[in-house]
Design a protein around this nucleic acid. Structure first.
Lengths: 217, 217
DNA sequence: CATGGCTGCGTAATAAACTAA
DNA sequence: ATTAGTTTATTACGCAGCCAT
């Protein structure tokens, strides 16, 4: 909620200063806001190598913009472009390289998430379709049954005893009409949400899990 | 492309085994390989805050073991346990906390991947099922059609010369699986679809595996 | 064959946004 | 409102696999 002015001011400042006193500014902001932890108490390094470092980074908006733009053009980074970018941004070429690496990773992740969501949609449609088909099958069976009975009826007066064509259980018209029988839809139990997470983090109404099925049974 | 097995195996190993030999291997390799690149040539800090890099990184196998074990017990970490662990491991409690954070994130990611794979399986079965149902619907329609014809024939055997109908009493189960298409399905007043509009584009393209993904890359 | 450059992967550490007590 | 712990996003490191020079 209360970002206060610091946020925007930060941006401005970082734009003005291509990253010279930048890191300072950040920590200032932090303290300004609420005495962000300054834990440097003890490295207490036992067997492990002592860990005491304090490097703050965060590229400026400007820098990220340019990088992002370049990334949009081409995810790969030839050393030429890298150096040029580093120069323009006032960064270590290494940083540029690292940034690109990380960006690629992020991109990949995002892509995968996207695919997941697509698959989910497809799956939902398919399930729906399957459901529809199931009811249609039931209906058709019923119709067929009726037709069979009709045939039976039509034939009976003519062909007296003809057990060959008996087929079906139909004693008479007591079939379904109301017994649409198998809910069955189970098929693959696959409790999708066995324990915790399985929520669609994204927008609007896309039924979680298989809840939507309930609407059809 | 062909990373060979190593890549995935590594991943697997590091996931399955609480990092048993993983880090070990790494450090071994590292030392073994001797000075594998000392890329500290130039910090070239330039105008950017000169990040004089430190060398930290990589908890020891032992440490990771214990952490992993504790994580298995409980993903959350009360400060009590945190401190205890830190003590036992000779680490900064901070590090323990960080480790747990990162571990949770990793775990979540893994979980999501799992979900993805599950979903994929579900999708495949559903697709298969749908396919099955589709053919069944076709079959039933055909049967129904035959039955209708039969009824027609039985009802008005006198009228018409009926040059067709060579195949009498069609109790055929399955015939040509390809002809059928007639929207038909009236007769018994059964407007099956007509209300539900699936935006499902398929019908025929059952993406095996992840082929469809290619469309998005 | 090694040397250096670039990449993917895993991971430690940090920062910021959030949340709950 | 302050504080501590959490999640999400980022930055950076180290390693191993490739592949050109």
């Amino acid at each position: 909620m209360n970002h206060g002015p610091t946020q925007d001011q930060m941006m401005l400042i970082s734009q003005l200063f291509p990253s010279s006193a930048y890191t300072q500014i950040i920590s200032q902001q932090g303290e300004n806001k609420k005495a962000r932890r300054r834990r440097n108490k003890k490295s207490k390094g036992g067997e492990n190598g002592g860990n005491e470092m304090n490097k703050k980074r965060k590229l400026s908006e400007e820098q990220v913009n340019l990088l992002e733009q370049n990334f949009g053009n081409e995810h790969k980074l030839e050393s030429e472009r890298k150096d040029r970018l580093a120069m323009e941004l006032g960064l270590d070429p290494r940083q540029v390289a690292v940034w690109f690496q990380n960006r690629r990773a992020r991109w990949k992740n995002k892509k995968l998430e996207e695919e997941y969501s697509n698959l989910k949609k497809i799956n939902e449609s398919t399930l729906l379709e399957k459901c529809r088909l199931e009811t249609e099958v039931l209906k058709l069976r019923e119709q067929l049954c009726e037709a069979e009975k009709e045939i039976q009826r039509l034939r009976e007066p003519i062909e007296r005893v003809d057990p060959s064509n008996s087929s079906s259980t139909s004693s008479h018209e007591s079939q379904s009409m109301e017994v649409v029988d198998p809910p069955f839809l189970g098929e693959f139990g696959v409790d999708v949400y066995d324990d915790d997470v399985f929520y669609v983090p994204n927008e609007t109404h896309y039924f979680n899990g298989m809840e939507w099925i309930n609407l059809y049974i």
